[in-house]
Write a protein that binds this DNA or RNA. Structure first.
Length: 450
RNA sequence: GGCUGGGUGGCAGAAUGGUGAUGCAGCGGCCUGCAAAGCCGUGUAUACCGGUUCGAUUCCGGUCCUAGCCUCCA
């Protein structure tokens, strides 16, 4: 059995991964709030944990990979009002986009994708448990989690109760007993969505959904919980507090894994800065596999500074990868996993190291050596590459049609046959101007979008 | 203000208490009508200052820079 080591945010070091049940590994990853199209920052955890899930499935007999969709949230309410769209329509449309974009990035569907609005009764039940056990209280129609009632609070994110308060820019609502207390349930009325509860009509706070859904579909404690590092505090800290206080379990999960954030021009990508990169737009610049490659070419825990160069580098690397994949026919459908590759992945999902191994094989293969082909095909299968035909990729609004391109290439072939190289070169230059790259081989002329 | 990470060649990005991967770009070749792609060869780096050590890029302390969290965030 492969010896896997993963970085655990709670202990801040790599630890040996020992599943609670080696016959059935369980993983949960925080998903998007569906109020806008997915951006590359939403995609990063999905890509990273997609690779992890593929790897775990290779190593263990069974994995259940669960993720949530937040479809009740203040940002959704706001977007719905601003755009004058019904909430359900908005969330279901955005979820559809999310699925489309993640699939374009070769992310496999989760085993189970759960929605917050489908679990209101479970949340109410858990909130009631917390009240009954003295970990939550009702105030002005709100239900709040009492942070001082849970002494373990702060152990995940390594924060003390008081250190944050000084200098923090938070206004403390007067109904809170303690400044760190957080909302489990809040009053709500039309046009915002609301549900009946023992505390009146209202809607859940943000943190409770993950805990209630994990308890129902994954069980506590479980193996791996993933998400962006920005969720470490307060969201994940709150999850632990709620989950352990409500159920009495000592551990919430064995591994907390957090991916680093994506930066654009050295600063965090965010709506307020206006530098959000939507996956759909990136797909207009590059094939999904190239975006996936770009994301995985930096170790998942490090920040990833995104630029045009990041993407064009990945695009090139992907193209070369596909050249090597197509250099020889696939002889054996049985996978042959390279041990060094598995070791790289087993070392806290070191995808850049895995890529460097792969690039070595690619080089040998393109040099005519077929012996690495089988392991390359297997590695790509494991990492989620090689499924797309990069030559089929098109920008959304191409400057020329495929018919035009092929007509031009035919003209150029005639010119070449007549040794009219000046004309042939002119045609090549004019196609390149429109983003078409031409490759002459001994038998034919190939082309692709740059 | 408090807390937590990170600083490796022109760029991207691994690794390591003892010759610092890999890719892109550059340069020189091969190939090509010329290119492109591919192949071969090749130069360049551990932010700064101390400490521990036979030896530090790696461990420890300080400085500087940078990012993130403390407010919605993937």
């Amino acid at each position: 059995m492969q010896d896997i080591h993963l970085y655990h945010s709670k202990t801040k070091q790599k630890e040996r991964f020992n599943p609670i049940d080696p016959e059935h590994v369980k993983m949960y990853v925080c998903g998007p709030t569906v109020y806008a199209r997915p951006h590359i920052g939403n995609a990063r955890p999905r890509i990273v944990f997609d690779v992890l899930s593929r790897f775990l499935r290779h190593v263990y007999p069974k994995l259940t990979y669960v993720g949530n969709v937040t479809d009740v949230d203040d940002k959704i309410n706001k977007a719905s009002q601003e755009q004058n769209i019904d909430i359900k329509t908005l969330t279901s449309t955005m979820l559809k986009y999310f699925h489309e974009d993640m699939s374009a990035l070769n992310c496999l569907p989760l085993d189970l994708e759960v929605k917050a609005t489908d679990h209101i009764p479970e949340m109410i039940h858990m909130i009631q448990q917390l009240i009954d056990k003295g970990h939550a209280y009702v105030a002005k129609g709100h239900v709040l989690f009492s942070v001082p009632s849970f002494p373990e609070y702060g152990r995940l994110s390594h924060r003390t109760l008081t250190e944050q308060i000084e200098g923090a820019r938070v206004e403390v609502e007067d109904y809170k007993h303690s400044a760190q207390d957080f909302v489990l349930w809040k009053p709500s009325q039309s046009p915002d969505p609301y549900w009946d509860s023992p505390w009146g009509q209202g809607r859940p706070g943000w943190h409770i959904e993950c805990t209630a859904m994990i308890k129902k579909h994954v069980g506590l404690p479980f193996d791996i919980h993933g998400g962006g590092i920005d969720l470490l505090f307060p969201h994940h800290e709150n999850e632990v507090a709620q989950g352990c206080a409500a159920t009495g379990c000592h551990d919430y999960c064995n591994f907390w894994m957090h991916n680093g954030l994506i930066h654009v021009a050295k600063e965090k990508m965010s709506k307020s800065i206006g530098n959000v990169l939507y996956v759909a737009d990136l797909l207009d610049d590059a094939p999904g596999e190239a975006i996936r490659y770009a994301v995985l070419s930096t170790h998942y825990r490090r920040p990833l500074d995104w630029s045009d160069e990041t993407l064009s580098l990945a695009k090139q690397a992907c193209r070369k990868l596909h050249l090597a994949l197509n250099a020889f026919p696939v002889q054996d459908s049985k996978l042959m996993m390279d041990e060094a590759l598995l070791d790289a992945l087993a070392d806290d999902l070191n995808t850049p190291k895995a890529f460097s191994l792969i690039q070595g094989w690619v080089k040998s293969i393109l040099n005519g050596d077929s012996q690495y082909h089988h392991r390359l095909v297997s590695a790509c299968h494991l990492l989620g590459f090689g499924d797309q035909d990069l030559r089929q990729w098109r920008p959304k609004n191409p400057k020329v049609t495929v018919d035009d391109i092929e007509a031009q290439i035919a003209l150029r072939a005639d010119a070449k046959a007549a040794k009219n190289y000046q004309k042939a070169d002119e045609i090549r230059a004019s196609l390149l101007e429109k983003g078409i790259v031409i490759e002459d081989t001994t038998t034919q002329t190939l082309w692709y979008w740059q």
